[in-house]
């Protein structure tokens, strides 16, 4: 996990620096347009950390993969830094096995509620032709609502909030004046419950309105 931090940080810093010359002076006094951008996406998630299966379960089977969904609303001001909120549903993992009384199943998922900061690797006042302008990194902090589902001698659906983080990198392809398609690789980490997952998503990005 530490290696990944390093790599993402290097991507962020290298990208930000190497594209420096491509930018206009973003601290001009005249303000540019502000835009509200809504993204929805889905893809594949992979639970990337240690999970615990009780030793009382015989012949356990584990699944680390899931299909996550994301909704993100971002404010794009007239500079590089962007701010918004993200939520969605991230499957974490599930397992099943034979317990003394019957077959048992456990499923864990999370609803992130995150404050997200995002930055394109380059900041251009003109078009989005630059590759670096289309690449962005994002980081978020906030809460995850961790949901657990148990089927054994009855069904228990339960949930608990956990503080956590998010880190991501994305590529956005313009497909019209108002719409973009993006692909994003994200790492979700709910620290209190020690749940973490990588998510690869395809997103539809709608530049809802500008002012």
């Amino acid at each position: 996990m530490k290696n990944l931090f390093i790599v993402v940080l290097t991507v962020l810093l290298a990208g930000l620096s190497e594209t420096a010359g491509a930018q206009s002076d973003s601290s001009e006094t005249k303000r540019g347009p502000y835009t509200l951008v809504v993204s929805v996406g889905g893809g594949l998630s992979y639970y990337s950390t240690r999970l615990g299966v009780p030793s009382s379960l015989e012949q356990p089977t584990v699944s680390r993969f899931g299909i996550p969904a994301t909704l993100r609303v971002m404010w794009h001001p007239d500079h590089r830094l962007r701010l918004g909120l993200e939520t969605g549903l991230v499957p974490m993992y599930s397992y099943q096995g034979n317990a003394p009384a019957s077959r048992a199943r456990v499923r864990v998922s999370a609803i992130p509620i995150l404050l997200v900061f995002s930055m394109p690797l380059a900041w251009l006042s003109g078009t989005e032709r630059s590759l670096a302008r289309r690449l962005a990194v994002s980081g978020g902090t906030g809460a995850y609502l961790i949901r657990s589902h148990l089927e054994y001698a009855g069904v228990v659906n339960s949930s608990r909030p956990s503080v956590g983080w998010m880190l991501g990198g994305s590529y956005t392809q313009p497909i019209g004046r108002k719409f973009r398609v993006a692909t994003e690789l994200k790492w979700f980490n709910a620290s209190a419950t020690e749940d973490a997952a990588f998510v690869l998503q395809l997103q539809l990005v709608w530049r809802a309105f500008s002012w």
Partner: peptide
């Protein structure tokens, strides 16, 4: 929570679980 129990995927109030469920899943 992981302060008190080993990781098993179960969460939420302990009052939501039966004694049998806790004995089987929680250490």
């Amino acid at each position: 929570n992981l302060r008190l129990i080993q990781k098993n995927g179960l969460d939420g109030a302990i009052e939501k679980y039966t004694y049998q469920q806790l004995q089987t899943f929680v250490r």
